[in-house]
Amino acid sequence: MAPSSGTDGAYGPGALKRPKRSPGRFGMALVQGCAVLTVAVLVFIIGYVMVKGARVMTPGFLLGSPEKMGREGGIFPSIVGTVSLTLASVIIAAPLGIGTAVFLTEYTQEGLFSRIVRFGTESLAGIPSIIFGLFGFLFFVIRLGMGWSILSGSLTLAAMMLPTIVRTSEEALRSVPDVYKETAYALGASRWQTVASVVLPTAMPGIVTGVILAMGRAVGETAAVIFTAGSSLRLPKSIFDPVRTLPVHFYILAREGISIENAYGTAAVLLSAVLLVDFAAYYILHRISKKRPVARR
């Protein structure tokens, strides 16, 4: 271990002075550089897409129908498709995910059963989206006969979102102070009464944040959606109709070189939507971390 003081052993008047070259200065600069580089990449990506796409993002583009495979016209059906697919998947996944989290935190003690449930959610979290896509195609589209539709797509997306919602809800539920629960129980409340009237309301902001974050991921998902919701450019009339979501539309435009111009526009819309959702989530999280009621000490 190198001594941080420049003199060796003799504590003269200069002994407490800062050494000229402190060891590790290079290392510190290096890690700082990593952070700067990462943020620069982020800023570049967002800036690049926004600047290139801004020109295309006109009301006519947002509200118009695509023409000539998307070479001209707008992206309205894709916006409708993305919104309905995302909302439907949240409506399916949120109750299941929050319910699982309540089950894990309030209704079971650590044991074989909870370990199985936890193993299930954690494994699900690691599965690549393309596998979800394959599964959704085999199971919902073909086996259950739902075809390429909002329904098939949202069920597949819901399965993908489940682990995120379970994890964030579980964190939020575990952060509810135990004395709240003890107080409710001590007043003769039953388990469900305690959960419904004390635990869930207290954890709700954290749960909502998690659901919104999961929603943000669903908005941008491509691989799982392209095989389950289809790629139809028509405006969907019901949840049994196929849709082409924004990321799918963007992918097709860019990869098949149909219109790089409109691809930028679509990417800008997609990115704005994702960022908006993310900021909403962080805003809620930030507000609760400030306002969180904590039992006085």
Binding site: P177, V179, Y180, E182, T183, A184, A186, L187, G188, A189, S190, Q193, S197, V198, P201, T202, P293, A295, R296, R297
Partner: peptide
């Protein structure tokens, strides 16, 4: 039972007191 730290449940004063009777 009353605990060591005051535990106001995250609701109004009225609802805190009415909690037990309601349940």
């Amino acid at each position: 039972m009353v605990f060591a730290l005051p535990v106001p449940l995250p609701m109004s004063i009225y609802e805190n007191v009415a909690f037990g009777p309601r349940k």
